[in-house]
Amino acid sequence: MSSGAVEAQKVVVGKTGLRKFLEQNVILLVLFIMIVFMAAISDDFFTTDNIINLLRQISILGILTLGQTFVLSAGNFDLSVGALLSLASILVIGLQPELGVGGAIAITLVVSILVGLCNGWLVGRVKANSFIVTLGMMSLLQAAALVFTGGMTLQSQEPSFATIGGGSLGGMPYLVLYFVIAAILFQLLLNHSVFGRKVLLTGSNSVAARFAGVKVGNIVSWTFVISSLTAAFGGILISSRIMSASPTAGAGMELDVISAAVLGGTSIYGGEGRAYNPGAWRTYFGDYDELHDTDGDSVSVSDDDERIGLTVCGWDRFS
């Protein structure tokens, strides 16, 4: 972890303002180029419909990525987010008949907090390796989702539930609004608050953090709780959007989320992180799918699209 701090310093030292900004935000530049490129080759790209579709498609993954950014910044991994998204999407629909929409959402969030605390306790207190702990947790949660549904897909019978993820405000889907609000909040929390500085310090040098009076174990626990909450929120949104839930909805999402966070400038060895850039990267991913989608009107092109969609998102490779 300490060498992560060394690398971080290397980047900062000796760079002038503009150069530094560009280096740290190269992903925005890539995104800008991608958008220009896409607009040039596809007529449909700049239609309002398409832009909104695209934003909607990236929002849920974007929200998960925001949570993962905290875990990574504190020097850990959270591989359990994909399975937790599946479990949450199932609980929020499966519990509706007994508890109503509100109750189901509340229980889902409570379960996700418990999962986050469990991860956080094992990593922060027991000091077990986060990669293995959350990999194990991923299997546990996946099993729970399968046992709960018996492998079946669940349908929601509560029409009111659809508005949470399916509604829109003045043409802008709620999903996109959630993502934008979450990105702003998380960016403030990570880079402009005492808590955020503690997270980054823990990630860059946990020993130094401890000497500086940071309760490292608690900070680590909190990052896992945040990550779990975003996963649960993502699960609720996905269920609400398609009014059904599959026990494997989030399978394989974890690597996608981590890579998005890392491409956004978060170091996997901790100590560096930004919340707004993951958003940019998600957009880039989304673009890539979109390019092939709007142009594709024959099956052969669709095959390519599927291939690229699958592989870029690394989506099905682990399911």
Binding site: K127, A128, M137, A143, V147, G151
Partner: peptide
């Protein structure tokens, strides 16, 4: 198989706890 998945996860967590504590 559903329980297998869960049990494997559990064993993974237990093993990493054991190795962590013994290393400590």
């Amino acid at each position: 198989s559903y329980y297998q998945t869960g049990l494997q996860g559990l064993v993974l967590i237990l093993v990493v706890i054991i190795t962590t504590i013994s290393a400590k």
